[in-house]
């Protein structure tokens, strides 16, 4: 059997935008005020009574071709054998180059430890057979986490049945976070160039 390859599917039909995932992540890692490992982007369309709201939960994409790895000058960022991209904090010098290299803006410099930080798929939990905190807490069971190399896993079945999308696949990073039925415009707009403005 092939070695494990972890990934996540987020079914937007089930997401209610409650931010429970964001809060669970904050609590799990004691993330300081002002920075987030995981959050939910909101997009609004139209005006009352013809209005709608769409969500895009955000977290590190654990890209197969992660651009944050080769740029790290000390080898602090690396990909585990199971595909999870992690940071060895004791090796990080806090130069911020990986923060600049991430096209999804998922990294930040931790205000207290002064090193780079981001979602790590809760590897401390996963290694013990548990689910990531955001998956466990999701009210709508919108998040499915697992091994995509295991044909019998729930995530493999979802990937077989559903049409999934990645954020900006044109970057060539091959993200390991997939979305079911996302708002295509939200997938395209997450950069600072377009906050509070209309989607291109």
């Amino acid at each position: 059997m092939a070695e494990k390859r972890y990934a996540m599917v987020i079914d937007l039909n089930r997401c209610i935008g409650c931010h429970a995932c964001s809060v669970a992540c904050k609590a799990e890692f004691d993330v300081p005020v002002g920075v987030w490992r995981s959050w939910v982007t909101y997009g609004e369309r139209g005006t009352y009574p013809d209005a709608s709201l769409s969500f895009l939960p955000r977290l590190c994409n654990h890209c197969e071709n992660a651009p944050c790895i080769p740029v790290c000058p000390t080898g602090a960022t690396y990909q585990r054998d199971d595909g999870v991209v992690v940071i060895k904090e004791e090796r990080c010098i806090g130069c911020g180059y990986c923060v600049e290299a991430c096209p999804y803006e998922m990294r930040y410099l931790h205000p207290e430890t002064k090193v780079a930080s981001k979602c790590d798929f809760c590897v401390h939990r996963v290694d013990q057979g548990l689910e990531p905190a955001c998956v466990q807490t999701c009210l709508g069971t919108a998040r499915i986490f697992g091994d995509i190399n295991d044909p019998n896993s729930e995530i493999s079945n979802v990937l077989k049945k559903e049409k999934v999308h990645q954020i900006r696949p044109d970057f060539g990073t091959d993200p390991r976070v997939f979305y079911v039925d996302p708002d295509p415009a939200l997938l395209d707009v997450f950069k600072r160039t377009a906050p509070q403005e209309e989607v291109v």
Partner: peptide, 12 residues
């Protein structure tokens, strides 16, 4: 119709 981003996180 185009959506407007009404909630987003921007790190420093």
């Amino acid at each position: 119709m185009k959506p407007t981003i009404v909630y987003e996180v921007f790190h420093p």
